[in-house]
């Protein structure tokens, strides 16, 4: 039991080292921020796309007011949503951005060859997760989150919180797998 735990801790440390190796570069960090921004924008505005289009193209307001219109949404996120919902959106978006950057890095260096070739639904699911495609799944989840988050039902509001945190857990697993791959790529690069 102790050995298993030690191995798990070691794997997590390796994954963290891999993630740090990728993210410490300014360009990667910018990628994380952009990914988080796009993801959170999608969650926050998916119910009001017509309004977004109106503000961007048709609204008779200055460019600065347009910037302020969107930026204040982020500033007011904790007053517009309840604390747990708001925190869920922020955490989910940051992890989404991180996952995208790691996925881009791994795909660039290894393509899809690192995806485990297992049979059965479990193996396929693992392959999808290991390949970082949680991001694809969570992008499908995002409108659901937004829809539920905006709806009036308390049950659905609670569900949205669970969905956002559940999505975050899935992304963390994907980051963990991608981090391990990135760490092995780092070792390979250093050998060369």
């Amino acid at each position: 039991m102790k050995t298993r735990l030690a191995i798990l801790v070691l794997r997590i440390r390796v994954a963290c080292a891999g993630v740090w190796f990728v993210v410490r570069k300014p360009a990667s960090l910018a990628g994380v921020i952009i990914g988080a921004f796009v993801s959170s924008s999608f969650i926050l505005w998916s119910l009001n796309l017509d309004l977004v289009r109106y503000i961007v193209f048709d609204a008779p307001i200055s460019f600065l007011d347009k910037i302020r219109f969107f930026s204040e949404t982020y500033r007011d996120i904790f007053t517009t949503y309840d604390s747990l919902q708001a925190l869920g959106i922020i955490v989910f978006s940051l992890l989404f951005g991180l996952n995208i950057v790691l996925l881009a890095y791994v795909l660039k260096h290894q393509g899809l060859k690192n995806i485990p070739k297992k049979s059965g639904i479990g193996g396929m699911l693992m392959a999808v997760l290991a390949g970082g495609c949680v991001a694809c799944g969570t992008s499908l989840l995002a409108p659901l989150l937004a829809t539920f988050g905006a709806t009036s039902s308390a049950f659905l509001r609670d569900l949205s919180v669970w969905l956002s945190w559940g999505g975050s857990v899935l992304i963390i697993f994907s980051i963990y797998k991608l981090g391990q791959i990135a760490a092995s790529l780092r070792v390979a690069q250093e050998k060369h």
Partner: peptide
């Protein structure tokens, strides 16, 4: 149209 919770600035604008 504004759907769902929105901040004050959205309405103000």
């Amino acid at each position: 149209k504004i759907t769902g919770p929105s901040n004050y600035n959205t309405f103000k604008t």
